[in-house]
Design a protein around this nucleic acid. Structure first.
Ligand SMILES: [Zn+2]
Ligand SMILES: [Zn+2]
Ligand SMILES: [Zn+2]
Ligand SMILES: [Zn+2]
Lengths: 166, 166
DNA sequence: GCTTGACTCTGGAGTGACTACGGGGTGTGA
DNA sequence: TCACACCCCGTAGTCACTCCAGAGTCAAGC
């Protein structure tokens, strides 16, 4: 059985949009595939595996630059693995920082949502009132003026990993 | 007391980068301020309040388009507040979805990090092995092929709200 | 008077990871 | 022959900033 795929088949097999595959190729994450006589990309199982690896790393929110480095480790297994550890550590730290601020966010939004009673005019909406009041500096940490060490956790990029169709 | 600020003062007062302020102006979130004779922007306290409102909403990860809508409600308090509720509900749903996938991410990454033992060659690194194995489809939900309802929670944009210097 | 430095102005480009589009070529079943 | 699905390429758009170059403005110091 010859497992030669065109881009659409590869995309369907991996659950990845074709445009994304071409993007990975353009940015050097996927090697340039062979071409059929008509110019269509011709992929083999190795491409599928590599693409799945990339998508799995992306599902872990690992940035493409780091995925590239991981792929180099896969290609060169004789390299030192300390860098892999550090990479995953950094990723974990990023995710934990985001997680923490997400939790704070969730709490704030949940309490905010509870502020809207029966009022139906925006001028009487508790949500809007709360937002305006908070912006004035009451009970909010997002815009304290003279605070020295008031850095928020950085948020980095979004993973998203959405698949188009089954 | 005349509280007329130049852009740098406004930025310092609100803890916002000047570039960000100009960006908000360009995109219509902040109204075009008056200009001094030398062409410098001249802001008043209303601008500061509006900017703080925007930053507070951004700290809640509310996208700028929605912030714009909220500002319209502030300007027109006679409008129906149902839209505010729905907006906050949607935001809360987004945040909760992200939170959930962040938690899953944290678990996956934490277990992944534990995979690296004493090995110092990438070829023997448990992390890399696990990543490759997971990409092949073992024990991972990120790239199941025939699953019908396998949509991942969408991740939307990042807030970041970082302040430059106190 | 001249220089230095801090501040401001403008328009434009870059970031990450896609996503969408326009204008065309290819291949197959009716 | 025609419709339609698939493929090609290059470019531009998304979001919320962030950075830059090149120029103008202003007060203080010498
Ligand atoms: Zn996976
Ligand atoms: Zn309400
Ligand atoms: Zn706030
Ligand atoms: Zn290791």
């Amino acid at each position: 059985m010859e497992t030669v795929m065109r881009i659409g088949e590869l995309g369907a097999a991996a659950g990845v949009d074709i445009e994304t595959i071409r993007y990975y190729e353009k940015t050097g994450l996927l090697p340039d595939p062979a071409r059929s006589t008509n110019g269509y990309r011709a992929y083999g199982p190795a491409h599928l595996e590599r693409l799945a690896f990339i998508r799995h790393c992306r599902a872990l929110d690992i940035p493409l630059a780091d995925v590239k480095r991981l792929l180099e480790f896969v290609a060169c297994p004789e390299n030192d693995c300390g860098d892999i550890d550090r990479l995953i550590d950094a990723q974990l730290a990023r995710v934990r920082a985001r997680l923490k601020s997400m939790q704070a966010l969730e709490r704030q939004l949940a309490s905010l949502r509870g502020r809207c009673g029966v009022a139906h005019v925006a001028g009487d909406c508790g949500i809007l009132h709360e937002l305006v009041a908070a912006a004035r500096g009451e009970a909010c940490a997002c815009h304290i003026e003279g605070l020295p060490g008031s850095k928020k956790a950085e948020m980095s990029t979004r993973p998203s990993v959405r698949r188009s169709g089954a």
